[in-house]
Nucleic acid binder design. Structure first.
Lengths: 303, 303
DNA sequence: TAAACGTTTTTTCTGTATAATAAACAATAT
DNA sequence: ATATTGTTTATTATACAGAAAAAACGTTTA
C-alpha cells in the first residue's frame, strides 16, 4: 500500500502556512493551496479535513477560517514525511559510505528490505536506478554485487568530471557578452565573497553554492548526459559529506577560494587561466574524496 | 510468478547439444551441463527430466544416454525463451523508435502494461533503468514523460560520444608496443577486410564488429562511466537499425572503410590522423542517426 | 460565466504472495 | 578422496492487490 508521506508533508506545510495567517482569516481556495503546497487538490482536501478535525480551521464549503494556532504536537514527525524511495536511498548510501561496505559484497534484496524496513519492491527499484552510478552490478537471476567505493571509482569519476567541466568552461568563455549567464556568474561571485566573509558561521552553506556554480557552468551549453552525470556527483558528495565532517570548514574555505580564482578567470574571459583554475579545483576535490575511499580487494562478508 | 524462460532456453540449447552427439552416447555430468548451458544445476535437472519425458534421453542417476533425436516440434518457441524484462525493453523501443512516439507524450504504466501483456511492475522496473538513457523523465506520483527521440537528443549523444572516443583513441595511440591490444587491433583490422570482401552477403555482420571495435578502443584505459555510456549507444543503435534497414549495405560499407582508415592511423601511431579519422567516422554516424529523429515539439497524444 | 467545490475515475506506489531459479548442504558412487 | 547426484533452503522475478494521490468530470456559487 502507498504511504501517506505526501499528505503528511503537505499537512505540516499547511500548519506553517496557517501560522503565518492571523486568526479568523479565511484560507486560500483549494486550487490555490494545491499550487502552494505542491500537491493535488485531493490531498489538499484531506489536509483541510484533518486541520478541521484538530480544530485548527473551521468552516465548510468555501468558507474556511483560521480557528486557532496548532500545537507543535500536531505536526507529523519528519520521518513520516519522507517517501520510501528516499529512505531507501539514504539508508543504502549510509550502508555503503558510512559502514564502509567491502568491495565484492553481494547485496541481498530480502536482507536489505528487512534491514531497511521496506518491501523488496522498494529495494529493487532503488538498485535499478542506482545501477547507473557504477557502484553496483546486476547478475541476472542471482542478485547484485557491490563493486566498492574504491580509489578506482573516484579516479574514474573525476576523469569524466574533468572532461565535462573543461568542456563546459571552454564554451562558457566564448559566450557572447549578451548572454544572461554572465550576470548570473557575477551574482554567484558575490555570493562566494559573502560566504567567505562569514565562513566561520556559514561554512555548511558551501555545498549548495558549489552545486549551483557547477550547474551554471554547464548551462553554457546544456547536455542531458552531462547533467545526468552531475546528478551522480551531487548525490555521492551529498551523502559523503554528511558522514565525513572533519575539516569541513577548512576544506570549504579552500574550495571557495578556488572557485573565486576560477570565477575571476571566467569573468576575464581568460581561457588558459580558466583551464588552470578548473584543473586545480578538481584536483583538490579529487584528493578530498580519495582520502575516504576503500581499497579494491577480494569480497568481504555479506551485505 | 517468475517465468520459466531460463528453463525453456536451456532446454532448446540442450536439444542442440544432444543433436551434436551420436546416439547412445552418454551425457556430460549435471555440473558440466550447468556450465555449458549457463544455468544452475537445478535448471539442468529440470531440462534432463523434460528430455527424458520426451524420450530424447534415457537413463537414471548418473547414466544418461542419448536415446533419439528430438523432433523440431520439441523446441520451445523463441518467444517463450525471452525474459519479461527483455520483452519489455524490446516493445518499448519499438513503441518509441518505430511508432515514432511524439516528444512530450506521457507514459502510462498501466496502459503500457496492458499493451505489452505484463504486470506494471515489469514496466516500472524498465522505466527506472531506462531513465539514465536521457529519453524519459519521471514526475513523482504522476508518471513518466517521453522527451522524444529528437535531433537534440542525437546531437547531445554524439557530443559525448566524440569526447569519449577521442579521449580513448588518444590514449590508445600512446600504448606501449608491448600491449596486447595492438595485436587485437590487427586481428580486428583483418576482420574488417574479410567483411569488406564479402560485403554483399554479410553486411549485417557489421554491427557486431562495430561494437567490438569501439570497446577495444575504450579498453586502452577502462572507465566504467564510458562503458556505461556505450551501453546506451549500443542499445539505441541496436533497435534503431532493426527498424531502419534502408541503405544498410551501403551505409555499412562506408562505415567499414571509415573504420579501416581509423584503424590504419592507430596502427601507424599517427595521432593527428587518428583524430581526423575518428571525427570523420563519428560525423557520418551522427548524420545517419539524425536522419531518423523527430522534431522537438509540443506534446502529442497519449502513450 | 468562470472560478471554486463535490464526486468519480484513473494511476501510482508499495506491500504480499508464489513459482522459478540458484545456491547450499548432504548423501552416494567411482 | 573427490566428483556426482539427491535434497533442502534461500533468493529473485513477477503477478496481484489495495490504499494514496492525481486527474477528470460534473455541479454549484458568487
Amino acid at each position: 500500500m502507498k504511504t501517506d508521506t505526501v499528505f503528511k508533508r503537505a499537512f505540516n506545510d499547511a500548519l506553517d502556512l496557517v501560522a503565518s495567517l492571523p486568526e479568523r482569516e479565511s484560507l486560500p481556495s483549494e486550487s490555490a493551496l494545491s499550487t502552494q503546497l505542491g500537491v493535488s487538490r485531493t490531498t489538499v482536501r484531506k489536509v483541510l479535513a484533518e486541520l478541521q478535525e484538530r480544530g485548527v480551521v473551521s468552516g465548510v464549503g468555501r468558507h474556511w477560517i483560521v480557528q486557532a494556532q496548532a500545537a507543535p504536537a500536531d505536526r507529523f514527525p519528519e520521518t513520516e514525511t519522507v517517501p520510501t524511495a528516499a529512505q531507501v536511498e539514504r539508508r543504502f548510501m549510509e550502508w555503503m559510505l558510512r559502514d564502509n561496505a567491502r568491495p565484492g559484497t553481494v547485496i541481498n534484496e530480502l536482507e536489505l528490505a528487512r534491514q531497511f524496513g521496506v518491501a523488496t519492491t522498494g529495494i529493487r527499484e532503488f538498485l535499478n536506478r542506482f545501477q547507473s552510478f557504477g557502484l553496483i552490478e546486476k547478475r541476472p537471476n542471482t542478485g547484485w554485487v557491490f563493486n566498492g567505493f574504491t580509489t578506482e571509482f573516484a579516479l574514474e569519476l573525476f576523469e569524466i568530471r574533468e572532461m565535462f567541466e573543461l568542456r563546459s568552461a571552454r564554451t562558457f568563455v566564448v559566450l557572447p557578452q549578451s548572454s544572461p549567464l554572465w550576470r548570473q556568474l557575477e551574482t554567484l561571485r558575490d555570493e562566494h565573497e559573502d560566504l567567505l566573509r562569514e565562513i566561520d558561521r556559514r561554512y555548511h552553506d558551501f555545498s549548495e553554492l558549489d552545486s549551483r556554480f557547477h550547474s551554471l557552468i554547464n548551462a553554457a551549453s546544456p547536455n542531458r548526459f552531462i547533467e545526468g552525470f552531475y546528478d551522480i556527483i551531487t548525490v555521492i558528495f551529498h551523502y559523503h559529506y554528511q558522514w565525513n565532517k572533519q575539516d569541513e570548514r577548512q576544506r570549504n574555505e579552500v574550495a571557495i577560494r578556488e572557485h573565486l580564482t576560477y570565477l575571476d578567470a571566467l569573468l576575464r574571459r581568460d581561457a588558459d587561466a580558466v583551464e588552470a583554475a578548473c584543473r586545480a579545483h578538481l584536483k583538490s576535490a579529487r584528493e578530498t574524496l580519495l582520502r575516504s575511499t576503500s581499497e579494491p580487494g577480494p569480497a568481504g562478508g555479506k551485505a
